[in-house]
């Protein structure tokens, strides 16, 4: 009976997880090739891509600040990627994005167990440390900020994008 109960609890957890992903159409799976399609999809516009994860302490502090930045800068395309290892947690991810005011940005979640390959496509030098922010200019120039980004630096970069435009 104990075993059956354990199986039952496992199923409930599975369904809860599946239902959460199904109920979050905004959370897109980040898979092989997604990075190139993100770059293509935003070509010619300033893009801020933020890699984070629900288990990362500094990310929890930074995410609401980024939410405010996105609100203040509609001219910058903000994209978030939850880059925690799979098993990823779509419900927790969506909840944190919602609380940070990032419900309406383009939000991805890593959805390939072979994370080395996903990361290699984005940046062969990236070992998986989060948070990490990539700033992509209209011309495609990429500036990478490792660790928590200073909002002042993001403001400065954003202003540069506008002045060039």
């Amino acid at each position: 009976m104990r075993f059956r109960f354990a199986g039952f609890a496992g199923l409930v957890a599975l369904i809860a997880s599946a239902a959460a992903l199904a109920a979050s159409p905004a959370l897109k799976p980040f898979e092989r090739g997604t990075w190139q399609s993100v770059l293509r999809g935003h070509a010619g516009r300033p893009v801020l891509v933020h890699f984070w994860g629900v288990t990362c302490g500094p990310c929890k502090v930074e995410l609401p600040l980024l939410g405010q930045f996105a609100k203040d800068h509609p001219d910058v395309d903000v994209v978030t990627v939850s880059a925690d290892l799979v098993p990823n947690l779509p419900a927790a991810t969506q909840s944190m994005l919602d609380k940070a005011g990032l419900s309406s940005t383009e939000n991805f979640i890593f959805n390939d167990g072979f994370v080395e390959r996903l990361r290699f496509e984005i940046d062969p030098a990236w070992q998986g440390d989060i948070p990490r922010t990539m700033l992509i200019s209209r011309e495609g120039t990429v500036t990478t900020i490792e660790g928590s980004a200073e909002m002042a630096d993001l403001e400065k970069w954003s202003a540069q994008q506008n002045s060039k435009h």
Binding site: R4, L11, A18, A22, P29, L85, G113
Partner: peptide, 27 residues
């Protein structure tokens, strides 16, 4: 009840399989 849950899990699983690559888990 358990059968119903298994059936639901199967439906959800199918939906997920269509949405996700089979490589989605580390395991």
């Amino acid at each position: 009840g358990l059968s119903a849950i298994i059936a639901l899990a199967f439906v959800q699983g199918t939906a997920l399989a269509q949405m996700r690559a089979p490589t989605a888990s580390e395991a």
